[in-house]
Amino acid sequence: MGRLILRGERCDNGLAMSFTVTTCPLVEARAPRADLADFTVRCPEIARAARPGQFIMVRCGDFTLRRPISICDADGDLVRFVFEVRGTGTAWLAERTVGDALDILGPQGNGFTLGDTSRPAVFVGGGIGIFPLLHACKPFGARAAVLLGFRTAGLISMVEDFQAAGADVRLATDDGTAGHHGLVTDLLRARCDAGAVDAIFACGPKPMLRATAAIAEEREIPCQLSLEQRMACGVGACLGCAQKIRRPDGTETYAHVCSDGPVFEASVVVW
């Protein structure tokens, strides 16, 4: 469980990890639901550099701040990201159409450390947290168990994509309209009971992540969580996106989700 986590990784020349700011064409824009956009941009610089769990900062019209959105998949020259319309920025973005140019910064952040992809791993996603798991689970093929939680059946998305990646997909809904009636962490517990799990990767709402971390700790399974926080710069310069973590010596400090994260070892996160 190597990486730590006090400031973003540095290159030999003392600079932070490099990122690109670029204008790139939207080549595919789908709307699986009225409030969900599934975009693909042609952006070779970002596509080639992207590692699973990293994100991009997308400029939205005249808004002061870019919006952080996870890279859902990167393939060749293409970067795919999927986002829900939450407020004014994502509403603006969702109205873009094929051929429009998007101003994107990335790839940014420390993604998932996948480790040995020939071993079984469990991916736990909730709500908008499911999107970055696609890129991450692909190298595991059929060794990935992907457990997805939603509020209700109408909000389910991406299941075919995960299945196409070879993963064993299980669903949970809060209201029982699809899959297990209950929490996605119930599925995680059951999966851990059923057989050896070497690693857990999770992204979703805080309560889900916290419960996931507790299960992982109880069973001593290495676990990485992708966290969210309000961001301004998205690159580690403004110190806006603080997350409290525990240092190896037991003291607490604020790390930054954009540059130290978004992925953290579950064991260092202070809730």
Binding site: T64, Q229, R230, M231, L239, G240, C241, A242, Q243
Partner: peptide, 20 residues
């Protein structure tokens, strides 16, 4: 100095608030 608890930034019309 550890700084303040999050959230530390918020967008505003043509600007932002910070409490780093």
């Amino acid at each position: 100095r550890p700084g303040n608890a999050p959230p530390r930034v918020a967008e505003t019309p043509a600007g932002m608030l910070n409490s780093v």
